[in-house]
Design a protein around this nucleic acid. Structure first.
Lengths: 94, 94
DNA sequence: TAATTTTGGTTTATTTTATAAACTATTTTA
DNA sequence: TAAAATAGTTTATAAAATAAACCAAAATTA
């Protein structure tokens, strides 16, 4: 029987964010927005969900006088991502 | 920038169905239901969507006197599945 | 320098999707 | 022959994604 896919990661935008965060130390909101081609509103919501799940941390600060939101993947998020990829392989073969 | 994931395939149940149909000539409703661990209602709805998209064909007949629903992946469905897997690789690495 | 636009977001509303519940028809079993 | 099981479909509900509206400050431009 097919394994379940973590519903938190099985969403294009959240998966994209996690994928990007896998390969960098940290990423800014605007960077994620550009790379995922999402709207700010949608991204904001999905980042909150990932954060509430403990998959990422969100740090809000300022650069000069503009707000700056910085995201990092957590250890837990990394593990969840790897497990998701593993489960997914059952579906897409190898 | 990350490629879009075909929303029709980016659903656990529909992806599971397509994955199963990739490896067999045809599959019965009850087989798909068991393998995907889904409810009949949900499966029925998702099969219709795949069928409407032209990704599978659904044939309704009878075995003895019981209804028998048989599904096959189409050429178009196969192509869509392969493209989906390809796009996904961008997200999950390799 | 006052009005306008842009940046960097958040919050709320709407739409879409997935899932569950209720239902139908027939058939098998107790 | 009543009850339960099979093989589904249809409809209602819950959850999710997305879009729209909004906010505050900063930068631009008229």
């Amino acid at each position: 029987m097919l394994k379940d896919l973590d519903p938190l990661l099985h969403s294009q935008l959240r998966l994209g964010v996690m994928s990007l965060l896998m390969s960098v130390d940290s990423a800014e909101f605007t960077y994620l927005k550009e790379k995922t081609n999402s709207t700010a509103g949608n991204l904001s919501v999905q980042l909150d969900k990932l954060s509430e799940a403990g998959y990422i941390t969100i740090e809000k600060s300022f650069r000069g006088k503009k707000p700056l939101t910085t995201c990092k993947i957590t250890k837990q998020g990394l593990k969840a991502f790897e497990e998701y990829v593993n489960a997914l392989k059952q579906y897409i073969g190898k």
